[in-house]
Amino acid sequence: EPLWIRPDAPSRCTWQLGRPASESPHHHTAPAKSPKILPDILKKIGDTPMVRINKIGKKFGLKCELLAKCEFFNAGGSVKDRISLRMIEDAERDGTLKPGDTIIEPTSGNTGIGLALAAAVRGYRCIIVMPEKMSSEKVDVLRALGAEIVRTPTNARFDSPESHVGVAWRLKNEIPNSHILDQYRNASNPLAHYDTTADEILQQCDGKLDMLVASVGTGGTITGIARKLKEKCPGCRIIGVDPEGSILAEPEELNQTEQTTYEVEGIGYDFIPTVLDRTVVDKWFKSNDEEAFTFARMLIAQEGLLCGGSAGSTVAVAVKAAQELQEGQRCVVILPDSVRNYMTKFLSDRWMLQKGFLKEEDLTEKKPWWWHLRVQELGLSAPLTVLPTITCGHTIEILREKGFDQAPVVDEAGVILGMVTLGNMLSSLLAGKVQPSDQVGKVIYKQFKQIRLTDTLGRLSHILEMDHFALVVHEQIQYHSTGKSSQRQMVFGVVTAIDLLNFVAAQERDQK
Rank of each mutant, 00 (worst) to 15 (best):
I238V: 15
I238F: 09
I239W: 04
I239E: 04
G240M: 00
V241M: 06
V241L: 04
D242C: 01
P243A: 04
P243W: 00
G245N: 04
S246F: 01
S246V: 00
I247S: 08
I247C: 05
I247H: 07
I247R: 08
A249G: 08
E250G: 08
E250R: 06
P251I: 04
P251C: 04
P251M: 05
P251A: 04
P251H: 04
E252M: 13
E253I: 14
E253R: 12
E253W: 08
Q256L: 13
Q256C: 15
Q256T: 08
T257I: 08
T257S: 14
E258N: 14
E258S: 11
Q259A: 04
Q259I: 13
Q259S: 03
T261F: 11
V264W: 00
G266I: 02
G268D: 00
Y269G: 02
Y269L: 02
F271P: 00
I272W: 04
P273F: 00
P273Q: 00
T274I: 05
V275M: 08
T279Q: 14
V280E: 11
V280G: 14
V281R: 04
V281W: 02
V281E: 05
D282Q: 14
K283E: 15
K283V: 11
F285R: 07
F285K: 05
K286S: 00
K286N: 05
S287F: 08
D289M: 01
D289N: 03
E290Q: 13
E290D: 13
E291F: 09
E291T: 10
F293C: 03
F293I: 03
F295M: 14
F295Q: 12
A296H: 01
A296V: 04
M298V: 15
A301C: 10
Q302G: 04
Q302W: 14
E303P: 03
E303L: 05
E303C: 02
G304A: 02
G304C: 00
G304E: 01
L305F: 07
L305Q: 00
L306W: 00
C307R: 04
C307T: 10
G308W: 02
G308H: 00
G309M: 00
S310D: 05
A311T: 13
G312D: 01
G312N: 00
S313K: 07
T314G: 15
V315G: 09
V315R: 06
A316G: 10
A316D: 09
A316W: 11
A318W: 01
A318Y: 03
A318T: 14
V319A: 14
V319T: 10
V319K: 04
A321Y: 07
A322E: 02
A322P: 02
Q323M: 11
E324C: 04
L325I: 07
L325Y: 02
Q326T: 11
Q326G: 13
Q329H: 08
Q329L: 09
R330Q: 12
R330E: 10
C331E: 01
V332A: 14
V332Q: 01
I334D: 00
P336R: 04
P336L: 03
D337N: 02
S338V: 07
S338L: 07
V339Y: 06
V339M: 08
R340G: 07
R340L: 04
N341V: 01
T344A: 10
T344F: 02
K345T: 06
K345Y: 00
K345A: 02
F346Y: 03
F346M: 06
F346L: 09
S348Y: 04
D349F: 02
R350P: 04
R350G: 12
R350Y: 11
R350E: 04
W351T: 00
W351F: 01
M352E: 02
L353G: 06
L353F: 14
Q354H: 11
K355C: 04
G356I: 05
F357K: 05
F357V: 01
F357E: 02
L358Q: 08
K359W: 08
K359G: 03
K359T: 15
E360V: 13
E361L: 10
E361V: 12
D362A: 13
L363W: 11
K367L: 14
W369R: 07
W369L: 09
W370C: 15
W371P: 09
W371C: 08
W371L: 08
H372V: 15
R374T: 13
R374V: 09
V375K: 08
Q376R: 14
E377Y: 03
E377G: 10
E377A: 10
L378K: 03
L378R: 02
L378A: 12
G379R: 12
G379Y: 12
L380G: 11
S381T: 14
S381G: 13
S381F: 13
S381M: 13
P383E: 07
P383V: 07
L384E: 12
L384P: 03
L384S: 14
T385F: 08
V386D: 02
L387Y: 11
P388W: 13
P388A: 13
I390W: 11
I390V: 12
I390N: 14
I390A: 04
T391Q: 03
T391V: 14
G393K: 13
T395I: 12
T395A: 15
T395N: 09
E397M: 11
L399T: 06
L399D: 04
R400M: 08
R400E: 09
E401S: 10
F404H: 07
F404W: 15
D405M: 04
D405Q: 09
A407C: 14
P408C: 06
V410D: 10
D411V: 11
A413V: 15
I416Q: 04
I416H: 08
G418F: 09
V420C: 11
V420F: 15
T421W: 05
L422D: 11
G423N: 10
M425C: 11
M425V: 15
L426S: 14
S427G: 15
S428E: 13
S428I: 14
S428C: 14
L429N: 13
L429R: 12
A431L: 12
A431K: 10
G432S: 05
K433F: 15
V434I: 14
Q435G: 12
P436G: 12
P436V: 15
P436I: 15
S437Q: 13
D438M: 15
Q439P: 09
V440Y: 05
G441A: 14
V443T: 14
Y445T: 10
Y445P: 07
Y445F: 12
Y445C: 09
K446C: 15
K446T: 13
Q447I: 12
F448R: 07
K449H: 03
Q450T: 10
I451M: 13
I451W: 05
I451Y: 11
I451Q: 06
L453T: 14
L453D: 05
L453M: 13
T454M: 15
D455M: 12
G458Y: 08
R459L: 09
R459M: 13
S461R: 07
H462N: 05
I463W: 04
I463E: 09
L464G: 09
L464A: 08
L464R: 04
L464Y: 08
L464C: 10
M466Q: 13
D467A: 15
A470H: 07
L471F: 15
V472S: 11
H474E: 13
E475C: 14
I477C: 09
I477R: 12
Y479G: 12
Y479R: 12
S481C: 15
T482Q: 06
T482E: 04
G483Y: 13
G483M: 13
K484H: 11
K484T: 04
S485C: 14
S486L: 14
Q487I: 13
Q487V: 13
Q487E: 14
R488T: 12
R488I: 13
Q489N: 13
Q489D: 11
M490A: 07
V491L: 15
F492E: 15
F492S: 15
T496A: 15
T496W: 02
A497M: 12
A497C: 09
I498G: 15
D499W: 02
L500D: 00
L500Y: 07
L500C: 15
L501E: 02
N502V: 11
F503E: 02
F503T: 14
F503D: 03
A506V: 04
R509G: 14
D510M: 12
Q511M: 13
Q511R: 13
K512Q: 13
K512Y: 03
